[in-house]
Design a protein around this nucleic acid. Structure first.
Lengths: 200, 200
DNA sequence: AAGGTAAATGGACTACAGTCCGGTTTGTGG
DNA sequence: CCACAAACCGGACTGTAGTCCATTTACCTT
């Protein structure tokens, strides 16, 4: 079911798999060395010993490459939401957890993920306009938040509000706040804004 | 004082002024014809009968051109905030207006401005990463919201929270919400999220 | 094991943003 | 009116994202 979100096709040819690994390894190497911003797609293709066409055919664009590199971390968070310990995970049978509490747990966990991979997330969101909303994982976060908002605020518009909450958790905003005020104040402000929507 | 925000230098040579008008007219014409996204800087230079160097020297980049086209509207809103009718403008001497009320008025007025020029605002924010935060007008909105938040929530972090509030008012988010749910629901959700911060 | 075919490859190609600098125009002071 | 410096001009140039398609590779069938 989560498999839909993966970029890997169900049956991958051997040469394709080999090149995918070469590209991911090269990208990780270059990003670590020069920083995400300073690395071009040509440089990644060259470092991987692969043609540009191969790079773009497989990953779509620069944000697709970032998503692929974030893939494991993203899936880990998704799995903890779907079947991990509450309050991040679902309540055990027969029990209830206030949606506000689950939302707070999600925001905290998401901020951990976000600040741990800030440059990569930022690249995955800003490579091309609207990239963020085309990523499979965005759909997952959106649905999760929308469901919790729907439980907490049955008379509001949880679908639309969920996008507004997630707009407060972008890599770009987190970067600006971190650069200006440091990570603790950035986290506090982002948490406040994301959770305040429940009290509106 | 607002003059700092203008792109026009204090003493502008005649040829420069002539070309600035030619460029703005050409850009407005092409945007109206083909839509903001589909017009390249080369096309604007050609339509204006001007070299590319001139275009970039004067407007910096694509977002600078969008800002110049939005200039009059932006200034109008800024002036109404600084010296217009309350609750958008400041309270008359001796009177008080609740910061929440002034913030609500700002959000409503800003959304009017945003939805009236959605494509242009979006371009001014997304032309290059971080463009939004470099625009002079952003500093103005940020300061205004930060001051109001400081009055309403003296124990919070109004500087950082102000960025979070404005993150919920981007052209990109407004576009997504409008495309998916229509303008009324988009406005309602954006308003809710922006004002909820006061209740957190 | 050979052959057919669908998928994958890679590098030349396009389009676009943004830079650079030799040459030109403008306003000014004599 | 002229000469001169500063400001400005424009188009050639660079670097990058993303596309295209003739060729190669891997896999499946017989």
């Amino acid at each position: 079911m989560l498999e839909i979100l993966r970029s890997r096709p169900p049956q991958e040819r051997a040469d394709a798999a080999r090149n995918r690994e070469k590209v991911l390894a090269a990208a990780a190497r270059l990003f670590a060395g020069k920083g995400v911003e300073a690395v071009s797609m040509d440089a990644i293709a060259a470092e991987a010993g692969v043609g540009k066409g191969t790079l773009f055919r497989r990953f779509g664009d620069k944000s697709g490459l970032a998503v692929a590199l974030l893939d494991a971390r993203e899936r880990d968070l998704q799995e903890r939401i779907l079947s991990g310990q509450p309050p991040l995970g679902p309540p055990p049978a027969g029990r209830d957890i206030a949606p506000a509490e689950r939302l707070a747990a999600f925001v905290e966990a998401y901020l951990d993920y976000l600040f741990a991979h800030l440059d990569l997330v930022r690249m995955s969101e800003t490579a091309s306009p609207g990239a963020r909303y085309r990523i499979g994982a965005y759909g997952f976060w959106h649905r999760h938040v929308a469901i919790l908002l729907g439980q907490a605020l049955p008379d509001a518009d949880p679908e639309a509000l969920s996008h507004a909450v997630l707009a407060g958790l972008t890599g770009e905003l987190a970067t600006v706040l971190k650069d200006r005020y440091g990570e603790p104040r950035a986290r506090a402000a982002l948490t406040w804004a994301a959770l305040a929507v429940l009290a509106g």
